[in-house]
Design a protein around this nucleic acid. Sequence first.
RNA 1: CGGGGCGUAGCACAGCCUGGUAGUGCGCUCGGUUUGGGACCGAGAGGUCGGAGGUUCGAAUCCUCUCGCCCCGACCA
Length: 592
Amino acid sequence: MRWSHYFIPTLREDPADAEVVSHKLLLRSGLIRQLGSGIYSYLPLAQRAVLKIANIIREEMNAVGGQEFYLPALHPAELWQESGRWSIMGQNMFRLKDRKNGDYCLGMTHEEVFTDIARKELRSYKQLPQVWYQIQSKFRDEPRPKSGLLRVRQFTMKDAYSFDIDTDGLDKSFEDQRGAYCRIYERCGLEYVIVEADTGAMGGSASNEFMVYTSAGEDMVASCPECGYAANTEKARSAIPAVDDGPVDLGIEKFPTPGVRTIEDLVTFPGGAVAEKQIKTLVYVSVAEKGNEAQTTPFLALLRGDHPLNEVKLANAVAKLVNKDGWEQTAVRPAHPEEILELMGARAGSLGAVGLTKTWILADEALKGRKNMTTGANEDDHHLRGVSIDRDIRVTSWVDLRTVAEGEGCPDCDGKLRVAKALEVGHIFKLGTKYSDSMGARVLNADGKETSLIMGCYGIGVERILAAAIELHNDESGIIFPVTIAPFQVVVSPLNMKDADLKATADGIYADLGRSGIEALYDDRDERAGVKLNDADLVGFPFQIRIGPKKLKEGKVELYDRATRIAEDVPVESVVEITKQRIADALQKLNG
RNA sequence: CGGGGCGUAGCACAGCCUGGUAGUGCGCUCGGUUUGGGACCGAGAGGUCGGAGGUUCGAAUCCUCUCGCCCCGACCA
């Protein structure tokens, strides 16, 4: 490929709209252009990289018995209504109508479509297991697209689904996928961690996320350097020291606290209490749907004064109370001020759960057995001290509601947790029978009885791998592509196209590289050396062959390694062979 | 959905407060010089100032509405 006629619109300056490194570099290096908010066009270089990533994924999926499909992105609403996700997905789903006013949506994921095929075609346990996958566009109307390719509204996903007859089969399918995922990320040059994760709107039992540590990430991962425990903070647990409440049980006492509105206020208020001795009382609302009906249920969440609430944990906990008799929780949100006043008879700042029986009270486990606590009196400008949880508060359920913090104890060993930002590049779930039950996907087992298919689903964001690789591998000059996913493996740069010797040498090297099966880009542009070298560095081709006048007189050219920034002088006649070897070594290192 | 910011040439921005000829740098085209880390000289092309309405003799500039984009938060397989 000749650069002079290849479309690589590099930018000298950082685009104003870009914030994170990968976004800046993807734009500057001429890989992508924005079409709309969260919608990007992939230019030729990006397309080459995306195809390489997709091929790595394809090879590893096929290696664990995956069969590649290609399903529609346009789905009839009925399918999603059957699974119940037409309402659960809410505004995140792109919806449209056809000319006959029929409801359709653009697929956010493909459980429904694959399950539909499975229920229509699979009849016997003898056909199982099946592992089906595709690499296809997904559409999500994200509330806030951002960070270039990291959070977008249309993206490419590899989504795989396994169908097994029993949980042993599911366990095997899950482990196969997990192994394939590890190989995929390794081959793409990503350092990753596998974490315990929340299953969210997917439903199901177990799930693992594959995370790449980067400040551009949107999740927080808690991990233990001692034992390897790692979990998304939406799920992470931690060990914390018990608080000594003293030997005697002081009685309940109401006291006036004018102007006190926050935990912090009460800490400094004379006669108040330190945060660890306070009970934080939060009012939340669960929103649920049943067919066309909707209901809202206010409830209380209690935490130790200094502990931050984790809304994902809260939503999961309250869903267990809400989801019955056909009701399905669609959202959990903080209560509005007027809802708080109606339920509690007091305003936020003076709330407390003592004596309340009319509503659910979800209490964090860290409050278990605590006594002599201070909390709101449910009367504006008054608090209670000497509260014993067991005696004074009727807790509906004890659950883990708190967000773990850096430095807290590992739940599995004596280590201390670290908490760091990370980017989710893959997620694998044990779904169980959520979809097969709701959509009636059953086969006959060995006993001749109908049994629901046991499913797993496994997703990888293809562009996120590209963006994550750039987040991880870059320097002040630009991208440093891992050789496995680089758009081209080497760029040939004669530093002056008007010098006939340089040009002739470059022509020859480029032709030889092609014959050797190396993916080379020939920078035949009539540009100054500085422009060529800077562009080559910016785009991040793993190797550069630089052909300059001085060294050519000695019969030598430079082979430059983008990652190490080391240039070695090699004889013209052997540069192709040496380059071939370098690329092979680099590929070997990642592909194993 | 709440908060903040920005829409002026392909890109980055100035001009707006205080209304009166639409500018700068990079990029682009042509000619010349130059050629190992984003050259130089000369000559050019390129803009309904996001859109609509209003105020005014006159609007990029003031007012109203609207659309789009970015950031923070909320939200989020």
